[in-house]
Design a protein around this nucleic acid. Structure first.
Lengths: 252, 252
DNA sequence: CGTCGGCTTGAGGGAAATCAAACGATGTGG
DNA sequence: CCACATCGTTTGATTTCCCTCAAGCCGACG
């Protein structure tokens, strides 16, 4: 564990600068080792030990598992600015793979170098802890969405969540963004079939909430979308600026 | 992050002793501060900062969230031997609460004391990292179960998983254990209604796989149950001894 | 031009939810 | 000790949400 802090940013505005600093330092340290992957590539293979941590520069990446009978599940989606492979530092080989959803560039750093780095620079450790915390919070939210949400709530939640994260990463404004997911992949992520994903998307379009057309998402009525997803959203997503009001960019 | 290792036990048998040692040391260090909770108590309240880490001694505990409209979701279940509150060290206040599922005793330690401890004793850090890794692995598995598994698969998976963990914790043998969950709570955990949970349990009973009667689980046909859950199980659960063959106790 | 991957729509079926009621344990107070 | 309330379980009838199967469509690309 990082020895220098036990707190978290965003609800602790005074740490925001430290967090940004950690991200900047980390990015610099990684900037020599840039790795490209093409859509569909396995960046980290399932059950293969990996001694590298990545920072996604451009493109989308997911952690997914394919069941024997062909069912597929996407556990998490990583967006530009996210670190992935972090818990490979402390846990076992994962039973699932990290796959590029689009063409991707990522910066890489080996565990041992990283450890030197954040021994010297607490802000980098903050950045890592932030990533772990966010990953887990998202995981909990998706678990609740899958367990208790219906199809509309799940998809609305997904759109809002991705939108909010892209805003924080400074990649998008005013409700439009690129989403390199096929409807099949949206289904793998939300636990639905592609047919049903399609119908829900149509409904959202017909009701003027949002359109998802060929990799492009446009959110037309954020408040309504928000209301739809509301029961599923956690307390932070309800009040956080990026889900409606003002905004606050983290990096990029 | 712990500076002294980047690996994981169980698949690295040489670390097993270190892990056990870490658990022992941690338990000793915590043994002064014993906390009791009654069934239903909130041990960690939602969105309340918490500077304490617990090791569950006896009883069951869960992390759960109640939605506005009354729907409830259980995100994780902690069993005796588990550490909880670990990520409160590095992340934000969680949006959900930790609740006692039965009467409970837990050992407690403050973050700052813990940090001193594992600065001196790497094995304690290993124990913490182990917990984080296991928590995450379980979370991923449940996500996949909820996203792609049907009711029978989910419940079979749950029973197997709990059984396996209790075995590892040395709490149970030969397929019988106490499970202080109402059928409603099983539903909250598996994303089903209590009515449907009941029907699935009946089916399992009628087919001679397992009986769940008033807090007591008896697994009668582990191979069949295993086969039922197989598509959902991760690679480790498929091969690990505790899910069928020999066993290897971790602590208690 | 044909093919292929992804999207769209329809028809029908099935798994799980909902609604509703009764039953069984456990506990409590008269 | 019995009446009664409470909590959890069990079962039935009905509905609904989502899946499955199937076919057509559209755009990209060789």
């Amino acid at each position: 564990m990082p020895n220098n802090f036990t707190e978290f940013p965003l609800h602790r505005p005074e740490l925001l600068e430290t967090l940004r600093r950690g991200d900047r330092l980390l990015t610099e340290a990684m900037s020599q080792d840039r790795k490209r992957s093409r859509k569909g590539d396995e960046i980290i293979r399932a059950s293969e030990r990996c001694d590298t941590i990545y920072r996604l520069e451009a493109g989308w990446v997911c952690r997914s598992r394919v069941l024997d009978d062909g069912r597929r599940s996407i556990v998490t989606v990583f967006l530009p600015g996210d670190l992935f492979g972090v818990k490979s530092m402390l846990s076992t080989e994962p039973p699932d793979a990290v796959v590029a959803l689009s063409n991707v560039t990522a910066l890489a750093i080996k565990h041992d170098r990283l450890q030197q780095l954040f021994a010297a620079e607490p802000s980098v450790a903050l950045r890592l802890a932030f990533q772990l915390g966010e990953d887990e919070r998202r995981l909990h939210n998706y678990l609740i969405a899958l367990g208790r949400g219906n199809a509309e709530e799940r998809i609305a939640t997904m759109l809002l969540e991705l939108h909010g994260r892209l805003l924080l990463a400074g990649i998008t404004q005013n409700g439009a963004f690129q989403m390199p997911l096929t409807q099949q992949e949206i289904g793998d992520f939300t636990g639905l079939t592609l047919v049903h994903v399609n119908r829900v998307l149509r409904r959202l379009r017909e009701n003027g909430l949002a359109t998802v057309d060929r990799r492009t998402v446009e959110i037309h009525d954020l408040p309504k979308l928000h209301r739809l997803a509301l029961p599923i959203l956690d307390t932070f997503q309800r009040t956080r600026p990026e889900f409606g009001g003002g905004r606050q960019q983290l990096w990029h």
